[in-house]
Design a protein around this nucleic acid. Structure first.
Lengths: 246, 246
DNA sequence: CGATTAATTGAGCGGACTCAAAGCTAGTGG
DNA sequence: CCACTAGCTTTGAGTCCGCTCAATTAATCG
């Protein structure tokens, strides 16, 4: 599967599998030197998950940690009677898995087709010992996820259905184009189907659908097909996400 | 794991202010040796905040970090038109302040009277450099807060008013008595007034009040006065928090 | 092409909100 | 001591947003 890393005298080169990997720069692997990276690469394997395929279940032991190479991963919680809430979305090059704990507190599932570079938890735990920078990177991601979770708490607790849907579209748009200050149109594919959008926004699919229709009728967005969104005017979408109903 | 406080030449003893401090054991200060603790103690000052008093405002620069000695701190977010959502509660010996960033992303306010042991951010940043265990402790708290935030996302997104209020009471009860498996009655003081409970639960004060009345009428709780709650039967409260309406 | 799943649209209901009023406390001053 | 006030909480009446149930349309796939 992976070409073995070149083993020259000084271990100066980075492993072949890591060469074009986003996680090496912006992800946790950026904390590792080439020797550590080679050590890690010995135990990695790339895994593909299809959309809707489970990665880890709530309470289950985590067999492998991983870095997302592409695709979108959803983290979901269930009530005892089966109501679902998506509590987080992860994108490349996010780290997947709960550090320092080998069990997951929620269901981890592929939202789209997902490619992950996986490795055994023990390797990471060992590398954390010798590289404080590695824990720092993991900590930074945890802080980022905490910020996002709290932003969504405001959305879930205090926003109307219209505001929630607009907030979601804005959130996804920001991930596609991190600096979207411009007023021009933005096009992207929704990584979630309606059911998942509803579970993320604390709504029903019918309400999500109705609110999308409203946004379309208000000419704030266009919907060429089920999964494609064109934001005609980002600033108006932002206004719809923050203020009262459109 | 932790280097035992060694009794050598000068800085052998732990600082006087730290002697009976909970944060020294269970909080972030537990990561520091007696020398580092002494260094930190030189710059600490204990501050008292009255209930409802702001500690840090959204976007404002953080002047001091701190550890909670007693009381309850609330973290709140506002929409542009003034709707409020409480996104977290902190208790002793939690660390207060955003690591690695000197500005706050939300309003930090005292819910009850709060005592905090404060210190300048720079000191912490320096100590993190020399003690990876310190960042590890901060990371563990961040992970704990992330778990709590995601639990509340499920509550806010998918639970009814009755379930939310029951969930809140259960949450507070757990903080008063961390191992409450027993079926006996539990008594405690609510750290939040109705307005704050509403802002935490994504409800109005009227709805919170009505649901408390329902729980009282169902003999699941007693309310000797506005702030005191007696949980008659913890298991029934838990059921009310998880399942559909009572 | 039919079969199956995903998404939209409609009608009607109900839970939580809004607006309004009254009850409780705790604190203040005559 | 009680009257008075101000803030917090409870209770009531009516409304509306989002849900439920049901039917239709659109997309996907063998």
């Amino acid at each position: 599967m992976n070409a073995a890393p070149r083993k020259d005298i000084h271990n100066s080169d980075i492993p072949l599998v890591c060469v074009s990997c986003e996680a090496r720069h912006k992800g946790v692997c950026g904390a590792l030197n080439s020797k550590q990276l080679s050590e890690l690469a010995k135990h990695t394997s790339k895994v593909t998950f299809n959309a809707e395929q489970p990665i880890t279940s709530d309470g289950e032991q985590i067999r492998r940690y991983g870095n997302i190479l592409s695709g979108v991963v959803k983290l979901a919680k269930l009530t005892s009677d089966g109501r679902q809430q998506i509590v987080g979305l992860q994108f490349a090059p996010d780290f997947v898995g709960r550090p320092f704990s080998e069990k997951s507190d929620y269901d981890v599932e592929a939202a789209t087709e997902v490619h992950v570079c996986t490795f055994p938890p023990q390797i990471l735990n060992r590398l954390v010992q010798e590289s404080p920078e590695l824990e720092h990177r993991l900590h930074e991601q945890t802080l980022k996820e905490l910020d996002e979770a709290r932003d969504w708490m405001l959305t879930l607790g205090r926003k109307s259905a219209g505001e929630r849907v607009a907030s979601f579209l804005h959130f996804i748009a920001q991930h596609v184009d991190p600096d979207l200050h411009k007023r021009g149109p933005v096009t992207f594919e929704l990584p979630l189907k309606r059911t998942d959008m509803a579970d993320f926004l604390g709504l029903t699919i019918e309400t999500v659908s109705r609110q999308l229709t409203k946004l379309r009728q208000a000419r704030i967005i266009e919907l060429p097909n089920n999964r494609t969104v064109v934001i005609a005017d980002v600033s108006r979408l932002k206004a719809a996400a923050d203020k009262q109903d459109i």
